[in-house]
Amino acid sequence: MPRLILASNSPRRRQLLADLGLPYEVRLKDVDESYPAHLKGAEVAEFLAAHKASAYRDELVPGDVLLTADTIVCLDEYILNKPTDEEDAVRMLLQLQGRAHDVFTGVCLLTGEGKRVVFSDQTRVYFRTLSETDIRYYVQHYRPLDKAGAYGAQDWIGLVAVTRLEGSYFNVMGLPVHRVYTELEKLGFGVVNQ
Rank of each mutant, 00 (worst) to 15 (best):
V172P: 12
E59A: 12
A148K: 04
D64W: 00
L16F: 09
Y142R: 07
V180D: 09
A161D: 03
T129H: 13
R27K: 13
G112N: 04
F170R: 13
V90G: 09
L80Y: 13
G167S: 06
L4F: 05
E33P: 10
N9H: 09
K147E: 08
A50G: 00
G188N: 13
E77A: 13
A53H: 11
D88R: 09
V103F: 05
L109Y: 12
A49C: 07
H51P: 03
G114I: 03
S10T: 11
G174T: 09
E166D: 05
A148S: 11
A45D: 00
Y181C: 07
R136D: 08
G98S: 02
S168D: 15
Q194E: 13
Y35T: 01
R143E: 12
C74G: 05
L145N: 09
V180E: 02
R124H: 14
T111G: 13
D32T: 12
Y181R: 08
A161W: 03
F119Y: 15
V180W: 06
D30Y: 14
V192S: 14
P83E: 00
G188Q: 10
G21K: 02
D58Q: 13
V192P: 02
G190E: 10
G112P: 14
M1H: 09
G152C: 11
Y24R: 06
V172M: 11
Y142M: 05
Q154D: 12
L28E: 08
A53E: 10
P62Y: 02
S120E: 01
V191S: 07
S8T: 01
K40C: 09
H178T: 14
G98F: 06
V90H: 06
Y151N: 01
R27A: 11
R27L: 13
V191K: 05
L60P: 12
F47V: 08
D155R: 10
D64K: 07
D64V: 03
L93E: 02
T182H: 07
G106S: 05
K147A: 09
D88Y: 09
L80P: 10
F47S: 03
S34Q: 15
E25D: 03
L93Q: 03
E166A: 02
F119A: 12
L130D: 04
L4R: 01
T133E: 15
D121P: 06
Q15F: 01
G167F: 02
T105S: 04
Q97G: 05
Q154P: 06
I135V: 15
I5R: 03
G114C: 03
N81F: 12
A161G: 04
E77V: 11
E185V: 14
G152W: 07
F119P: 13
V44R: 02
G112A: 02
G158H: 01
D70K: 01
S10Y: 07
R99S: 11
E132A: 01
V172T: 11
P36S: 12
V180N: 08
Y169G: 03
P144G: 14
R128P: 13
G21Y: 05
H101L: 01
L22T: 07
K40P: 11
P11D: 11
L4E: 00
A69F: 05
P83T: 00
G167M: 04
D70A: 00
T84D: 08
V73S: 09
A53L: 15
S34R: 15
L109R: 02
L17I: 00
V139C: 15
M92G: 10
Q122Y: 02
A53W: 14
V44H: 07
H141D: 08
I79Q: 10
